[in-house]
Design a protein around this nucleic acid. Structure first.
Lengths: 213, 213
DNA sequence: TGTACATCAGTGAACGCGCGTTCACTGATGTAC
DNA sequence: TGTACATCAGTGAACGCGCGTTCACTGATGTAC
């Protein structure tokens, strides 16, 4: 854990190291309260006050960590979607990747989507910008499915929210109530809920168009 | 905040007062970390050590609070279901009541269903007993719907889990990401996801029976 | 009926802990003359 | 080329805080004789 002092214009190096250490701590320990200024400083190999050379307070630091996590979530989902054979398969892959990310990084997921966090609440704009990247991508994927005819043409934002509700439901229930006898694994749960939901949309649309003519 | 000392055999009175105060603190402040031994003692009008006359430690106290909350959630849902006109309406009322409970008591909801909580994790058996009351009731409601023919006959436990995923998804997303531009209110979100899901189950069953002959 | 005693519901003071943050500083590195 | 000086990356010690919990105690209430 020896660290060499940064050269003159390289002060920013520590900033990156701090974020990396905080992220590691968050992901590895699986406990949000393990991420203290002191623990981070220890992990980096530096004294606590050094943190304040690069972040105004702990909130700003956690916020930077969140930004990075939002980016990674988006990246993971997009990567999963790239292997898809068709727009419907793409949606399923996205959904599964989302839940997998949550289960693999439960503490990160908790901070991103299960926290009251007044801090983030304040910084809404930025959070939204970062977090909404993946939401925008989801809306795009849904519109692609609609255009391809595998989903009826509806308000894509509302459908996106519904899908988010489903995948978040699976991820956060499994994280929050791990002791429940869940019967199926995460992928199966996603498939079950999402499959029925999508068929429901299709059935509804078919019924509506049938009644029209 | 004056409190008269309990008479000889009435020591148990304080126990109930402690649970009540802890619950009030949890619900009113909306901050789980506001529920400290000291704050509870203050609210009751007693000194901190008195708490330990009735609870081995903070975990046990929080656990008792959770039990009570599980009971109330179940009660609220059952009350909502009693006004239903038919089994399908009953499911909708249950779903809406569940989400409403979550939004009205976000901190309680967080502790019940969005926490890693090693404490509860340890005490699984008991938690399950209490929390599963409402799950068992949900399974019953689903079977009633199946028997009435408004839902296809499937594995009722799996369907119950799917429904739970949906309502928990709505509740916990609204609690965890309040800054997102949600478009619709909670009831509408529940109706949208649940409606499509149920129609999807029906459509699937219809297709399966049609293909059989 | 009176008194000694056990019991019971609580109190008061203190413990050690980890936390976020502040403040005055140090010492190496580069720059100006 | 040598030296004074500003700058920059960090340090060390301490702050006040609230926390869960412990421990020896007090004083009212009931019971036994």
């Amino acid at each position: 854990l020896k660290r060499t002092r940064a050269k003159r214009g390289e002060g920013e190096r520590l900033r990156a190291e701090i974020i990396a250490a905080a992220t590691t701590l968050l992901l590895d320990t699986g406990a949000a309260n393990a991420v203290s200024i002191r623990a981070i400083a220890d992990a980096v190999g530096v004294t606590p006050p050094s943190i304040y050379l690069h972040f105004a307070d702990k909130t700003q630091l956690l916020y930077a960590v969140c930004e990075e996590q939002f980016r990674q979530l988006d990246e993971v989902i997009e990567a999963a979607a790239r292997g898809a054979t068709d727009p419907k398969d793409a949606l399923q892959r996205r959904a599964r990747a989302y839940v997998r990310f949550g289960l693999e990084h439960p503490e990160a997921y908790r901070i991103l989507f299960m926290q009251p966090i007044d801090e983030l609440h304040d910084k809404v704009n930025h959070e939204q910008a970062a977090g909404s990247d993946s939401f925008v991508h989801l809306v795009g994927a849904i519109e692609a499915a609609m255009n391809a005819g595998v989903l009826p043409t509806l308000d894509s934002t509302r459908v996106a929210i519904d899908l988010w509700v489903c995948v978040h439901g699976v991820a956060s229930l499994l994280i929050g109530v791990p002791s429940f006898p869940w019967v199926d694994d995460a992928d199966a749960m996603v498939d079950s809920v999402l499959g029925a939901y999508c068929e429901g949309l299709a059935a509804r649309a078919a019924a509506a168009s049938a009644s029209r003519g």
